[in-house]
């Protein structure tokens, strides 16, 4: 029995007594799993596009068409044109292995191998799709930012020329053309997301020893400079 038929069976059995979200999986558990996504994606009432697009209404949406999001990869745009729609089956496949479904996606996510994790996450996303009125007002993103930075730090205008100098340290591992061959792409990020991510490494909220070390000795100005430089790198 394949996963798909299991899902279908669960649907048939569960549908009469519980809501549709519950039928897919446990959306409360899915909210916890969404922390893996929250560095790049927001859902909820005040959600904004970040590194990745808003995920409100993703169910049933044509791939690569979130309104106002401008950073889709060619691969994702093409997949949408070719008819990819985010239904249960395709969200499940994408979350299991993003690069398998959309080969040139820029989503730097290895995938969720556990079928139940995916089902629970999809159930959580479903909450923000099947009935937008239910979007919880108190928790705009479902998950708070990894680090809370003062307005002063977020307001620093980075010097891209200084950022270019500092970037040479990044480019030993990260590709300047934005490709991901095993190390995530860092080009074209919104400034605030870049700054938050680097500060999250700096205070060791994000768990990666190389990045914790690299960010650990960057000043606030240096992080801003790098954000300014990489933002406009194609």
């Amino acid at each position: 029995m394949t996963y798909k038929t299991i899902l279908a069976a669960i649907f048939v059995m569960a549908f009469p007594v519980v809501s549709q979200a519950d039928a897919i999986g446990d959306d409360a558990r899915g909210q916890q799993i969404f922390k893996k996504c929250a560095a790049c994606h927001q859902v909820g009432a005040n959600a904004k596009h970040r590194v990745g697009p808003i995920l409100n209404g993703v169910f049933g949406r044509q791939a690569g068409t979130a309104e106002g999001y401008t950073r889709y990869s060619q691969g994702m745009t093409r997949a949408g044109i070719d008819g990819l729609v985010w239904d249960l089956e395709h969200l499940d496949a994408y979350l299991e292995n993003p690069k398998s479904l959309v080969s040139r996606t820029t989503m730097n996510f290895a995938g969720l191998k556990d079928a139940q994790d995916r089902a629970d996450l999809i159930a959580y996303l479903r909450v923000f799709s099947d009935n937008p009125a239910n979007i919880p007002e108190a928790e705009p993103t479902g998950v708070p930012p990894e680090v809370t930075l003062s307005p002063e730090i977020l307001a620093i205008v980075g010097d891209p020329e200084y950022g270019e100098y500092l970037s040479s340290e990044c480019l030993t591992c990260h590709q300047s053309d934005g490709s991901n061959q095993g190390i995530p792409a860092i080009t074209g990020w919104p400034t605030e997301d870049f700054v938050i991510a680097m500060h999250a490494y700096k205070v060791k909220v994000r768990p990666h020893p190389v990045m914790q070390m690299m960010a650990g000795r960057l000043s606030d100005e240096e992080i801003a400079a790098l954000a300014a430089y990489f933002k406009d790198l194609e």
Binding site: C173, S176, Q181, I183
Partner: peptide, 14 residues
């Protein structure tokens, strides 16, 4: 290991 493969691609491009 996968990170090391990415690093190889990165440093050789660099």
């Amino acid at each position: 290991y996968e990170e090391s493969v990415g690093w190889y691609a990165g440093i050789t491009s660099d």
